[in-house]
Design a protein around this nucleic acid. Sequence first.
DNA 1: TGCATATAGTTAGATATAAAACAGTTTTAT
DNA 2: ATAAAACTGTTTTATATCTAACTATATGCA
Lengths: 151, 151
Amino acid sequence: MCEESDLKIYSIGHEIKAINHVMQRKMLASATDKGIDKVTVMHGWIIGYLFENKDKDVYQKDIESKFAISRSTVTNILKLMEKKGYIRRISVDSDARLKKLILTDKGAEINSVLTQTIADNETRFNSVLTDEERKTFIYLIRKLRNGLENG
Amino acid sequence: MCEESDLKIYSIGHEIKAINHVMQRKMLASATDKGIDKVTVMHGWIIGYLFENKDKDVYQKDIESKFAISRSTVTNILKLMEKKGYIRRISVDSDARLKKLILTDKGAEINSVLTQTIADNETRFNSVLTDEERKTFIYLIRKLRNGLENG
DNA sequence: TGCATATAGTTAGATATAAAACAGTTTTAT
DNA sequence: ATAAAACTGTTTTATATCTAACTATATGCA
């Protein structure tokens, strides 16, 4: 039970926060370089997702499941993104409950500027660990969560 | 580059959130059972830390480094905890910059009720994985972070 | 047809979180 | 001695996050 191998939840949380933080810094640097809005990592991911799926219908609920955030968080984030002019949220006739998400020109511009940075981040994130290590890591974090949930 | 072994930061974040969530639920259940305030996981950790170190001087900056949260977040959390009556924050003569943290009786009572739940959480968290797996996990998450930071 | 249930999204309230700018206080170096 | 630098904590501003209660709509079944 030595300090080194004792696992604290807040320590893991800290590593994750640090990882996010590095990504955020790189995105801010790119945005400043290119003279575009400084967007958060999550905004960047959502913009990228909408760009990739611009030929399909994407609704708020899809963001919820894709990024595993609560419904109300989705509302908040997307409202803010709309206010900043990156997306529009449009009611559709087929189902009045849904709001379809459309990337604006401004959103698309941000995507084109940040795509490389985000891709670099993802690539680096996936190249730091070997394939084997990455599989192990995913296995372990899921085991941890399941073990805790079913305990 | 198949979906299964592709590592997304938000996926990891999601696992961590889920883990925290399980702990939070268990703490709320305990608090309801015993008729005490419902405290957050972080409040529980801080209360436990102050109880363990009640013979030592603990300042706000110690919370900052112990739990790896920013200075302003520490201010917010501790102010809230003081408002709820779990702690007091006292200026000391030796150094006017410091605020010493004192666990109140109410804080100590919460500690005595939640200690078992928190310890159970920690124990389970540390028994889900074998020693070997735990070491591997810590190694991998640090490698991930360092690789990203120095890339 | 019509009611119960499920689904999509919003709002309110609470907490967490960080960066930046700030105000004192203490230490260090010259 | 004093000026610069470092340290500790606060405030402001902005964002993220959840739960619970809510509105509105759609679907399914009896």
